[in-house]
């Protein structure tokens, strides 16, 4: 075997086949030697529903983040009451004069009945605000729930008992009522009667309250799972080899818990969008003129008999978002844990 001028590719292929060095183990054929993360990623990529859902979800987040930019390009904002300011847009009863909720070249999604604001920009700003709050709350909730749940489950004993009782109390606590009672107190403490309620205060307290009451169910679920897992052989083995509790929790237990965590987290996000809307409806969440997705749908529901278009855009986008997000969660779970694949 003396090839005078070996091509650069040929030896590579040969070596690849002959002696699989660790550095080259990421080649497509060496299935058994790839990391679980990469395996999951490749499985996820094959799942068309998952990929499409991912694009949809990302699109919503991009639309939300880019809302001010879109509004600028489109030339309108969600605060001006166009229908009030320009005669001829709303009729005497404050419904859009033009058919389909007043859709026109000026107002692509029509105008809002009564106040006459632009639905297009209002929707994107609403998505922006709602997603920001819901995503932050869902993230914090999951994080807190995971940490508390696994710790309680792993440590057991008194810690578990204490955490368990706190969770009991939180689960039994009427959180909506609490927030309604708590909100005026917050206002009284933080807002001078001579000042407007700052939006950041509303947003922060919404996120905090939803987190404070949301983590308990995740924690309880994970505690149960951990209780079962910690007696398993691989945990015993890790203990025997002298692994620290932190290592056991994060490297041994956590990878086995991604499925319930992901399911819970993906359920949380859409729930929080609606919770936040419900709170706004009760007068303690985001208030007009701050655009809000959930509030928009609630308003739409009042007018559906005369102006279905107004409910259509926020409603349809909400349905698409929630479905896409849940499908995405499903796919991610399937990709991470092929055994549970339906």
């Amino acid at each position: 075997m003396t090839p005078p001028t070996p091509s650069p590719a040929a030896p590579l292929e040969v070596t690849d086949e002959d002696s699989a060095t660790p550095a080259k183990s990421s080649a497509p054929k060496g299935n058994e030697s790839r990391s679980p993360g990469r395996l999951a990623w490749s499985r996820f990529k094959r799942d068309r529903t998952g990929v499409i859902s991912a694009y949809v979800v990302v699109l919503f987040f991009v639309l939300g983040i880019a809302a001010p930019l879109i509004a600028k390009l489109y030339g309108k904002d969600p605060y001006t009451t166009y229908g009030m300011n320009t005669p001829g847009l709303l009729n005497e009863f404050n419904f859009p004069v033009k058919p389909n909720g007043g859709i026109s070249s000026d107002f692509w999604f029509g105008i809002e009945p009564q106040l006459g604001r632009d639905v297009f920009t209002f929707l994107f700003y609403g998505i922006r605000n709602s997603l920001l709050i819901a995503a932050a709350a869902a993230l914090l909730t999951t994080l807190l729930g995971v940490v508390v749940g696994i710790t309680a489950g792993y440590l057991g004993g008194k810690t578990d008992y204490l955490v368990g009782r706190v969770i009991d109390i939180l689960l039994a606590f009427p959180q909506t009522l609490f927030f309604i009672a708590f909100w005026p107190v917050v206002l009284a403490i933080f807002v001078s009667p001579e000042e407007n309620t700052p939006v950041w205060l509303t947003v922060t307290s919404l996120i905090l309250v939803m987190t404070a009451f949301g983590w308990a169910s995740i924690a309880r679920l994970l505690r149960g799972e951990v209780l079962a897992l910690r007696e398993r052989e691989f945990v015993e083995a890790a203990k025997v080899t002298g692994a620290s509790p932190a290592r056991i929790i994060f490297k041994e237990l956590l990878p086995n818990l991604w499925t319930p965590i992901l399911i819970q987290a993906t359920l949380l996000l859409p729930t929080y969008v609606t919770t936040e809307a419900a709170l706004a409806f009760l007068g303690v969440g985001l208030q007009d003129p701050t655009p809000d997705w959930g509030v928009m749908i609630q308003n739409g529901a009042k007018y559906y008999q005369d102006d279905i278009t107004f409910m259509l855009f926020p409603g349809l986008s909400m349905v698409i978002f929630v479905v896409a997000f849940n499908l995405l969660g499903d796919s991610v779970r399937d990709a991470l844990d092929p055994k549970t694949k339906r």
Binding site: F93, N94, L115
Partner: peptide, 14 residues
């Protein structure tokens, strides 16, 4: 004071 806009929200001239 925007009387007209307020009345619009109440339901217009009716």
């Amino acid at each position: 004071w925007p009387l007209q806009q307020i009345r619009q929200i109440y339901g217009g001239p009716s």
